[in-house]
């Protein structure tokens, strides 16, 4: 009997599912999934062959040396790569089994469900209130903004610090506060998934600790994907970890990223199955 490629893929993935279900009967629903994902900038391939499954109410960390394409992959999840004119995506990114790069899918609609927090805190040069209310406002919400802003700031553990100066410029906040404001801003649109692109890299250890605590608190309501440079951070906060690395292209001297290993965080750090992962997590390279 002829077996088509698709069938084979289906069977393989079914097997993987079986294994995971056996390991953990409570394994939650798959929210995001990539299949054979390649990302190009012009003719240059930045990432190749990424296959990932991200599950609901978990924190998934993506780690790896710089230039390994982890941020590029993250930006595929809410189509932020659309903003770069030369960027092109091949393969599939599925969100609740809908192909995000499918025909007529609206990036705006995607981003209202899959929010993002960036590497450098990037509040708008507006008041604290207007920053948080921005997303709901552009989405058309006209009433109840006061409550919503308060609730979002509370979730981001920032309310007590700013409740008396909501009208002040957000640029007057400290770096850590600004990043929590950005989290509040992302939460205010009531997303399903929160993507965090090295959210603590510009922060001091205390501010980093607060953001990490915050992630643990909110993960019961959201699915979180975090890209981090910091292996300890991945080990501390995440449930699953994807390790990426880069291979140097001989001709162009540019690097193409690829996914090496994806597993429970515990396994990645204590019992990696790939030598490259082990080398990285033990600090031998990267």
């Amino acid at each position: 009997m002829q077996i088509t490629k698709e069938q084979r893929v289906d069977e393989t993935s079914a097997m993987i599912d079986d294994i995971e279900v056996r390991e953990d009967p409570r394994a939650s629903e798959i929210v995001l999934e990539t299949r054979d994902l390649d990302v190009y900038y012009g003719a240059f391939r930045a990432v190749r062959d990424v296959g990932l499954r991200i599950r609901a109410n978990e924190i998934t960390a993506m780690i790896g040396p710089s230039g390994c394409g982890k941020s590029t992959v993250l930006r595929c999840f809410n189509r932020m790569n659309d903003l770069i004119e030369s960027a092109r995506v091949e393969g599939e990114v599925r969100y609740h089994d809908v192909d995000l790069y499918g025909d007529k899918i609206d990036a705006v609609e995607v981003r209202r469900r899959i929010g993002m927090v960036f590497q450098k805190p990037n509040p708008f040069p507006k008041s604290i209130f207007d920053n948080v209310a921005y997303g709901p406002r552009v989405a058309g919400q006209r009433r109840g903004l006061d409550d919503l802003v308060e609730r979002s700031l509370q979730r981001a553990a920032l309310w007590d610090e700013v409740k008396d100066r909501l009208k002040d410029s957000a640029l007057g906040l400290s770096g850590g506060q600004q990043q929590r404001l950005c989290i509040a801003r992302a939460l205010a649109v009531d997303p399903d998934v929160l993507l965090m692109d090295e959210p603590c890299s510009a922060l001091d250890p205390i501010a980093t600790g607060r953001i990490e605590e915050l992630m643990q608190e909110i993960k019961h309501d959201y699915t979180i994907v975090i890209v981090t440079h910091n292996m300890q951070q991945a080990a501390r906060v995440s449930d699953r970890t994807a390790f990426f690395t880069a291979e140097v292209n001989e001709e162009s001297d540019r690097r193409t990223g690829l996914l090496v290993e994806y597993d429970r965080t515990q396994n990645i750090f204590s019992n990696p199955s790939d030598g490259r992962t082990e080398a990285y997590v033990t600090g031998r390279f990267g």
Binding site: V108, F124, V138
Partner: peptide, 25 residues
């Protein structure tokens, strides 16, 4: 670019971004 990204990141359309962030800046 950060300001544009922040705006798109919370689901603003291109015009929302231009009107409320790019032009004021």
């Amino acid at each position: 670019r950060e300001i544009r990204e922040a705006s798109y990141g919370v689901g603003a359309t291109q015009w929302d971004t231009i009107r409320t962030n790019v032009l004021p800046y």
